[in-house]
């Protein structure tokens, strides 16, 4: 930028100098070509388009950025979401955690209900065994 500052001789001078620079002639060429193709020979753009089919398709598809994003990121995110839903939500949380714990309780209850016979002497017997075990445990610890 030092060099630029040294070259700079005011806005008007820069404007006049432009007429001998490459960008100016490139600009002029761009305008002239646009005028020729879209005012004079209006049939040419269509012909050029057909000639450079592949190139036109690349531009038409915007270099494929959108397609890539749609197919990889958008579709990928949807697929990931679908998988997480099926394995995480449906299988793991709903299946294993929610329904699984309900099933587990059911299974425990199915076994445990055999204890509930409704006979008083069964309960009395259970109490006697319990008291015996408790006393055994107490004496065991009292000795130490």
């Amino acid at each position: 930028m030092t060099a630029y500052a040294n070259e700079f001789h005011g806005a008007a001078a820069l404007g006049l100098h432009a007429f001998v620079t490459l960008p100016f002639w490139l600009t002029l060429a761009g305008v002239a070509l646009a005028g020729y193709l879209y005012l004079v020979r209006r049939d040419l753009p269509e012909k050029i388009r057909r000639k450079v089919g592949v190139l036109y398709t690349v531009l038409e598809r915007k270099y494929g950025f959108d397609d890539f994003n749609d197919r990889v990121f958008a579709a990928g995110a949807r697929m990931l979401g679908g998988k997480l839903w099926r394995w995480g939500d449906v299988a793991l949380i709903d299946g294993a955690a929610v329904n699984g714990s309900a099933r587990l309780i059911g299974r425990i209850a199915r076994v445990a209900r055999h204890l509930q016979t409704g006979h008083v002497y069964h309960y009395a017997f259970a109490m006697v065994i319990g008291v015996a075990l408790y006393l055994a445990w107490l004496t065991w610890f009292a000795q130490r």
Partner: peptide
């Protein structure tokens, strides 16, 4: 620099 030509072309 090439962009200058392209700009002029699409604008006009």
């Amino acid at each position: 620099t090439l962009g200058v030509f392209v700009t002029a072309f699409y604008s006009f």
